[in-house]
Design a protein around this nucleic acid. Structure first.
Lengths: 361, 361
DNA sequence: GAGAAACGTCGAATCGATTCGACGGAGGCC
DNA sequence: GGCCTCCGTCGAATCGATTCGACGTTTCTC
């Protein structure tokens, strides 16, 4: 009954060796004779000892084998986004060899309690696209002296970051549309800040979320006057709702929509179908991300393929480096333009003189 | 530079109090005079002390604030399944008030290293549908003396489990189909074991995965001779591939497919469309889960709606209870039958005498 | 055969905080 | 005014493992 769990000292005593020797048997950091090892293991078996207590070990070694991943949203919302899912997978792969696991953290802790950056035993932290609370999270992590890497966000000079050439990539898609003769183009953007209600973005409004701003800028490089309609999230449903709004008035209807995510683009295509428009004949739509959107067949989005898994892996590698005492470089990944069948000549436009776009090669 | 991080003793010394008092200021477990608190906080501020080291605290208290969630698959595969995603969300909600976070763990650790059940500082563990490694995981957890909850899996008598009335629910859908006159019915099942290659399941084959077996049994209660074709995973793509196989030969083609997940069902519907069949006129399809399948409109699946978020929350509640020293009861949730527009009278069948099914009320 | 190197084991210090019984002083009661 | 209570603070023990220099033995080398 009152059976306190066995400790390594108990095992050592049972095996007739010192605690240090027993410890070494489990950690393997120092050679131990075969018979000693066997004796210790047998003693452990007898006592039902299942290896060193991770809590005690982590106090001594200063390592817990835990990498925190900080999201700003509900987990459910996060994992609805295939890009994040794939990225997490890459991240998990990359930290596994470190002997580390991923701890899910929300930086906007509703209750005030809850495992958080402040109280979790972390070796390192990965912040994902948290533009809002980013500064706050960073300062917590910083005063705790925990290595940190940021994916898709600006964290200041000395924090390695992993991001994309959002602006350049989006510019490429926009050029593609321009070369197809499009002029009435609308940008359907991701939220411009957290808790954004879908709608047109006033020119005077600041765009707090980096990704959104960068992609918008890329589109504006080509279409300086393109209005921006921001959705509340990246999903087919949001895209559908936004698409309905954008396509409602035939008089002002755009000939092309530059969506900032594939899911939004898919929603716009559905909205177009609803409105009796043919994609791409009546409306061109471009996406962003390059994921497989279920249920979109036979459409293949014209989109920018981002290396999501690579991003995750790079973040993991950066964490590994910092844990090793080396310092990690920031990495900027490049998206690949992929032409699908959702973009075509603008209605009434003449075919372009040259190739449609500087898409590759 | 050699700036060692400040400890609580440093803070105490700086504030002119004892370490115990300083500790209490941060934990709030004992009343402290306002001025003492202020002095300690000021000292902490001065020294850049960001609160007690979680590692040390967890050694002393025996609590780490971490709940492990064990999957058997790749994270990416797991989160592809909306049911799991939603469940995780419920779980996250339920453990947050405990001050706990979720640590993602794969029980089948490829490298042998990697944070695992054995080495992570866990307060409790939640095992999800891991039928294969389940026993092994359980024994690890058990010798470590960690409370554990199992979702969708049999873990023996003294482990609380959260699951569904899979068999009864599936039987309900099958009855529905029978009452519509269907006789040539095929079960499109989830994998029958890990690493399963899609194909017909021989009658002699054992079904290792509980969910798969229970749902099959439910279907067999109504259609004892229904053949079973098992997919390799729950996804639209897998459903599509399976659907193609099932519908290939017009001579043997079923009039109804009982799919064990909504995603599989969606894939079958796509396959039917490809084959020029009308759903539900030529083919009825039922799903399981009751999630929103993107891109399936205008179809609304006839399916069994399971309370996924509730399951997660229940698991969290069970964990909370066990951490409190109470013991947690097993819970079996009930699915709700929902008739959509993907099931109809079997081709050439007479309308049923009574209502179509004992669906509710 | 003497000295050196190699190998395995041991001791003792240490990681940083928490906890609980003890203790001292201030205020209340009779 | 003396005694009792209450409240806040302090000491010291403890949580369980790791680490590294020291210390025999044994084996190898010249």
């Amino acid at each position: 009954m009152g059976a306190r769990r066995a400790t390594i000292s108990d095992v050592a005593r049972e095996a007739g060796v010192s605690p240090s020797t027993a410890s070494v048997v489990f950690s393997g950091k120092t050679p131990v004779s075969t018979q000693t090892r066997a004796r210790v293991l047998a003693a452990a078996e007898r006592l039902g000892y299942s290896g060193p207590d991770p809590r005690a070990a982590s106090l001594r070694t200063g390592r817990s084998g835990i990498v925190g991943v900080v999201f700003e949203e509900h987990l459910g919302d996060t994992f609805l986004d295939p890009v994040k899912t794939v990225m997490m997978d890459g991240l998990a792969d990359a930290v596994a060899p470190l002997g580390a696991g991923l701890l899910l953290l929300r930086d906007h802790d509703p209750a005030g309690v809850g495992a958080s950056l402040t109280t979790a035993p972390l070796d390192a932290a990965v912040l994902i696209g948290c533009s809002g609370m980013l500064r706050e999270s960073l300062s917590v992590v910083h005063t705790r002296g925990i290595p940190v890497v940021v994916i898709e966000g600006d964290a200041g000079a000395d924090v390695p970051r992993i991001d994309l050439d959002n602006r350049e990539a989006q510019r490429q898609a926009a050029s593609h549309l321009r070369s197809l003769g499009h002029e009435r183009v609308v940008v359907l953007s991701l939220p411009i800040r957290t808790d954004w209600v879908p709608g047109w973005v006033p020119e005077t409004a600041g765009i707090e979320i980096d990704v959104t701003r960068e992609r918008r800028d890329g589109a504006r490089d080509v279409f300086p006057a393109a209005p921006v309609y921001a959705a509340a999230a990246s999903s087919i449903d949001e895209g559908l709702a936004a698409g309905r709004a954008l396509l409602a008035d035939p008089a002002t209807r755009p000939t092309a929509v530059i969506a900032q995510s594939d899911l939004l683009a898919a929603g716009v295509i559905r909205a177009a179908e609803e409105a009796g428009l043919d994609v791409p004949r009546d409306l061109s739509v471009t996406g962003f991300d390059g994921i497989e959107v279920d249920g979109l067949a036979p459409y293949e989005l014209t989109t920018l393929v981002q290396p999501a898994a690579e991003k995750g892996r790079a973040a993991g590698a950066a964490v590994a480096a910092m844990l090793d005492g080396r310092d990690a470089a920031s990495i900027r990944f490049t998206c690949a333009f992929r032409e699908g069948n959702t973009s075509a000549l603008a209605p009434g436009a003449a075919p372009p003189a040259s190739g449609p776009v500087d898409s590759g090669g």
